[in-house]
Simulated assay, not measured.
Amino acid sequence: MKHIVRTLLVLTSIASVSCAGRPAVPSLTQTYNGKPVLTRASHPQGGSMSPVDGVYLGRRYFHPQGVKTGLAWIDVYGQR
């Protein structure tokens, strides 16, 4: 029992440390340098699919409605 508790504590601390160093991807309504973020989606339901010129901030994932399988994403960019 002690080994299980120790293992869970170690895994929890490793997970919290690995996530702490990564900045969160801004939501689609936030700003970067005082300007709204730009997005590029992999699926039409995510918005614009055209290339974006900006600072890459990360990727958000979603499941498109009406699609049986598949995971789509939205790349978030900051305006310079």
Rank of each mutant, 00 (worst) to 15 (best):
Q45K: 02
G34L: 03
V55Y: 00
A24S: 08
W73N: 06
R6G: 07
Y61Q: 13
L8P: 06
P44G: 04
V25S: 02
Y61K: 09
S13D: 06
V10T: 15
R40S: 15
V67N: 07
I14E: 09
G54Q: 04
R80Q: 13
A20R: 11
A20M: 09
K35C: 05
K2H: 04
L28I: 15
V67R: 10
G78P: 11
L57W: 00
T29A: 13
H63L: 03
R60S: 13
Q30K: 06
S16T: 11
A20T: 05
L8H: 10
S50G: 11
K68E: 11
S16W: 04
L57S: 02
V17R: 05
Y32R: 04
H3D: 15
Y61N: 09
Y32C: 00
I4V: 02
A15K: 06
K2Q: 14
A24V: 10
H3C: 14
V25N: 02
I4N: 01
R60D: 14
Q45A: 06
G34H: 08
H63N: 06
Y56W: 13
W73H: 10
V76H: 13
G78C: 01
P44E: 03
C19R: 14
T29C: 05
I4W: 05
F62K: 03
Q79I: 07
S50F: 12
Q30E: 12
D53Q: 12
G46R: 07
G21P: 02
P51T: 04
L8G: 12
D53S: 14
P64C: 08
K68N: 09
T69S: 05
K35S: 07
Y56V: 08
G70L: 01
G47V: 03
P23I: 03
K35Y: 01
G46H: 08
Q79T: 01
Y61A: 12
G66F: 08
D75Q: 03
S16Y: 05
P44H: 07
D53R: 11
A20P: 04
Q45P: 03
S18W: 09
V17L: 03
R40W: 11
T29Q: 09
S42P: 03
Y56E: 03
R59S: 14
A20Y: 15
C19V: 14
L28C: 13
R59I: 14
K2V: 12
S50P: 03
P23D: 01
V10D: 11
S13P: 07
W73K: 09
A15I: 14
